[in-house]
Amino acid sequence: MAKLLQTLFDGVAVGSLYALIALGYTMVYGILQFINFAHSDIFMTGAWIAFVIAKAAGWAGGDTPIWASLVTLLGSMIFCGLLGFVIERLAYRPLRGAPRLNVLITAIGVSLFLENTGQLEVLFGTQPQRMPTLLSSEPLFRIGGVGLPLVDVVVVLVAVGLMLLLQWLVFSTRLGRAMRAVSFSIPVASLMGVNVDRVVSFTFVVGSALAAAAGFLYAMKYPGLNQPAHSTWILLGLKCFVAAVVGGIGNVRGAMLGGLLIGCVEMFGAAYLSTSLRDVYVFSILILVLLFKPTGLLGKATVEKV
C-alpha cells in the first residue's frame, strides 16, 4: 500500500513536470504544425539558469527563504521566455510556410546550437553540477505511511497553478481567442485582423517560460544537473513530446492528461516491473495510442477534403 501510494505521488510529480513541458510542444504544434525539437533545450536552459541564479546569489542549504525559490523560478522563466522569443524571431519566422521538414531541421539546428553554446566554459560548461537545495526534501507531512516532501508538493502546486493560468489565458482572454483562431487557420485569422506574428511570438514566450518553470522544478527534484549536451535532456524532451502526442497534440488539456499518464506509466512500470525498461514503456504507450487512436486521446480527427 505504501509502495503504491509512493509510486502514485512520484508519478503525479513527474507527470506534472512532463505536462508543463508538453504544453510548450502542443502549443507550438497547434499553431505552426511543427515539432519544436529545441523545446527540450529551453527546458535544459531553464534548469541551468536556475542553477546559475542560485549559485550567484549564494543560496544553499535547507534554510533559504521561500522567496529565493520564487526569484530563481521567475528569473529562469523570464530568461527563457526571452530566449524563446528570439529563437522564433531569428530561426523560425523566416521559414513560416516552408515545408515542414525544413522547419524541423531548423529546430534540430537550434537544438544543437543551444546545447553546444551552453557547453561553452563562459556559460554552463561541460561538467555536471549539483543544484543547491532551495526546498527541503524532508517530509512535509505523511499520508498512509508515505512522507510527502516539500519539493514534491511545490512541484505539483506550481505545475497545476501554471496550467490553470494557461487554461485561463487560452480560453478566457482576447489573446487566447487570437491563439485559437491562429491555430485554426493562419490565413483566415490574419484576414480577421489577428496579428499572427504577435500571437506566434507570444506562444513561444509562454511555452518557453513554462518549460523554464519545469526546468527549475526538475532541478529542485533531481539536483544532479547533467551537462547541456547530455542526451538525458533530449530524452526527457522526447518523453514530454510523447505526452503531448498521446494526449492529442494541439490540445492543451490533452497535454496535461498525457503528461500525467506518461509520468504514472513510467513510475509504475519502474516500480513494479523493471527500472531499466522505463523508456520502453513510454514509447510503447505512444505507439499503441497512435495505432488505435491516431490523433491522441483528446485529439479530434481531421478529414482531408477530396
Partner: peptide
Amino acid sequence: SYRMIIYALLLISMMI
C-alpha cells in the same frame, strides 16, 4: 568547442 555551434548555424542558415 565552436565546431558544433558553427555546424548548427550553417544548418539553420541553409534551411532559411
